[in-house]
């Protein structure tokens, strides 16, 4: 395994990753940075790259960043584990969960 430098970092907040960016689609237009009312993101220092998630602990899951993104497939929600739903198949009775 290639040695990765280990830094002394504090714990990541919970939630830590409210969304996942897909850099192959996202063109870094920063529209999501603008629509987020609590400023979870800042623009990426590198132009054209997806924004940086700076304040994930302030996300209230309003969905505006994902729903207003002009390039579908650039950004997806990443529900924290405790927030994921349960449901049941009516025909089989099998209990299912959002386990993506």
């Amino acid at each position: 395994m290639a040695q990765k430098k280990t830094y002394a970092l504090p714990n990541v907040t919970t939630p830590g990753t409210p969304v996942i960016f897909h850099p192959e689609v996202c063109n870094g237009c920063n529209h999501c940075v603008e629509v987020c009312q609590v400023d979870v993101y800042i623009p990426n220092p590198e132009k054209g790259k997806p924004p940086v998630i700076l304040h994930p602990d302030e996300c209230w899951y309003c969905g505006c960043c994902v729903n207003d993104c002009p390039r579908p497939g650039s950004i997806t929600f990443n529900w924290p584990v405790q927030q994921r739903a349960y449901w049941k198949d009516k025909a089989t009775g099998k209990v299912l969960r959002d386990s993506q």
């Binding site: 505006c64 739903a85 959002d98």
Partner: peptide, 24 residues
């Protein structure tokens, strides 16, 4: 509501289909 659209989208991606599934 964008807030609840997430729910539809995320549950949908997770496989939830309201025609077949009962939601907890």
């Amino acid at each position: 509501e964008s807030t609840t659209k997430n729910i539809i989208d995320s549950y949908g991606k997770g496989g939830f289909d309201p025609a077949r599934h009962l939601l907890q």
